[in-house]
Design a protein around this nucleic acid. Structure first.
Lengths: 340, 340
DNA sequence: TTGTAAGCGTTATCAC
DNA sequence: GTGATAACGCTTACAA
């Protein structure tokens, strides 16, 4: 149980000063060839590694980035983490992950904790509760302190920072267009309540597609689900009252729930009803029938967010670029829940 | 873009010394009531928060724990993270997540990086490559340096540390017993190659159950899959050559792949063939038919691991308890892929 | 070529 | 009651 080796110990051991050791290990030309060799050999032998904490304190930067997400058991968010991780590691950054569990308070707590020296910047997707409350003081605070923040997926206009989003509207529109192209006439949408920005945008894309094809919008075919827990029941109810030949769901859970409900109503997918989901997870890929979905490329988003954050972290203070929003394109993955 | 407030600034502002400020904020009785109030008011007004990095350096502890997992897109691991996160946060610890992507090198790199002051201890599940190489020097190294390590799920006996595992053998046995109880006679197993410890243990449980029920083991019914990528093909092949009335799969992917293959062979699940999976993920829950599985309670494992680690971190150096292994019980979740 | 000293932000010890 | 000082491990002017 030897404690970690420090410069001081090496110095004492080799009977030189701490700064000599420090310089030698950095191959400074100030230090004579022989002492340098001696020191480096010793350091290697005893496997010296500089203490990150001390470096962080000295340099006033930690080389780690914090990512705060609403929930980790959503496949989409885990792919984002992967993306962040990969890019961050490439550039020599560490990643520290915190969960807000969709709670405003926990989001604030996590942010404060990490802001007190643990990270150089943040990548964050807003908790549902935060969007409801529309209280963003904690975000403004960290930005004010000069810590860069990149918002992704669940973002809001009020905050002045870099953002990464997907083309929700366009993606939704493409999906609905595909349904129309394959002969569907009565297309329903299963969405979320409007304060979840993505739900809103995807609904807009749906409406857009209908309009462009001169299909009259039937408000009855628009289902907005408040509570994910009871989504299955609500979808049941919806199907009891409405006849559709296609359904566009704004996430994969709703899509799967819809298929189950349809099956119970004796309707076959995709023969009687086509279904498209948003979010391309395991579930979509492996479900029977496998789901046609709008793929969000989470890891691409994560990578993009990491790139933007690091860019800002490493740019000169003075020539700060204006904030920008990166839009990651979605892709329609055609599988077996739609006709061809 | 004001930089963060420090003790020094408060001191200067209020014309007292740094140590006075420090003490006042800690409600030290040494400091006079009036100055204390003044300082606290000022600190609150300007929202002073101590710098974690400085504290870490001073206290030689970071109050963060590192978790290194092979892959995050596995639902099981994300539930473990959730569990760790929850317990850690309760006890005032931060969690930093790194991925080894099942690569030995990346596991070593991550461990070294975190060991250089970033964390007080580790929770880790071994990369597949590490288990193949059987090279554990990096783990022994950190233990040697006095950093506690808790291994979970994919563990090995060689390493002297706390461990959290599930009762793989017992869980598998219960599953197979359930198949037997519901009238299955020819029970196949879809497992992994033996160096993945869990695959091995689950296979043993399977064998155990058969023996206890005096069912002769048919080696042909034991499929060991090396490469997950081609699992579907291997399972296809397996079914072409063997008639079974039940399949026990050591993870949910294999179970789902098996059901697909069975469907293609015109066999109905569970009418013709019962299927049980291991790992209780989304997929199992939402698949049609929903899968009977052995649930691993990932978040419980994570919580347990965090508890063990923190226990060790906070125990007095001298009265070190011997290392222990916690076994988290599995649970058979009966759903629709087996008969009743 | 090597060493000294200051400083990153904090706390603990001791002196005033 | 309050403040100076040293220390955590490291880097970097600057001095020798």
């Amino acid at each position: 149980m030897k404690p970690k080796l420090t410069l001081k110990q090496i110095a004492r051991e080799l009977d030189v000063s701490v700064s000599t050791v420090s310089k030698a290990l950095k191959d400074s030309t100030e230090i004579g060839e022989d002492t340098r060799q001696k020191i480096k050999a010793f350091a290697k032998l005893y496997n010296y590694k500089p203490n990150n904490i001390a470096l962080s304190l000295k340099n006033r930067k930690t080389k780690t980035i914090g990512i705060i997400i609403p929930e980790i058991v959503h496949h989409f968010f885990t792919t984002v983490i992967s993306g962040v991780e990969q890019v961050a590691n490439e550039k020599g950054y560490n990643v520290i992950v915190c969960l807000s569990n969709n709670s405003f308070d926990k989001e604030v707590l996590n942010l404060e904790m990490l802001a007190n020296g643990s990270t150089d910047g943040f990548i964050l997707s807003l908790a549902k509760e935060t969007m409801q409350k529309q209280d963003y003081h904690h975000l403004k605070e960290v930005i004010n302190q000069g810590m860069p923040l990149v918002l992704f997926d669940r973002v809001i206009d009020d905050i002045n920072c870099d953002k990464v989003i997907i083309d929700d509207g366009i993606g939704a529109k493409k999906a609905v267009q595909h349904l129309i192209d394959t002969g569907c006439k009565k297309i329903g949408i299963i969405s979320t309540v409007d304060y979840v920005s993505v739900g809103k945008l995807r609904t807009e894309g749906y409406l857009n597609a209908l309009e462009e094809n001169n299909i009259k919008v039937d408000e009855d075919l628009i289902l907005k689900i408040e509570d994910v827990e009871h989504s299955e029941k609500e979808i049941e109810e919806f199907l009891n009252h409405n006849k559709v030949d296609a359904l566009f769901a704004v996430n994969e859970h709703f899509a799967v729930a819809a298929i189950k409900a349809l099956n119970e109503h004796g309707m076959k997918v995709p023969k009687d009803v086509s279904v498209i989901g948003f979010t391309n997870g395991e579930l979509s890929r492996r479900f029977i029938p496998s789901l046609t979905t709008v793929s969000q490329h989470g890891s691409k988003m994560g990578g993009e967010a990491a790139r933007m954050l690091i860019e800002r972290l490493e740019s000169d203070e003075d020539k700060e670029a204006p904030y920008s929003t990166t839009i990651v394109e979605t892709e329609l993955i055609k599988r077996n829940s739609t006709r061809s």
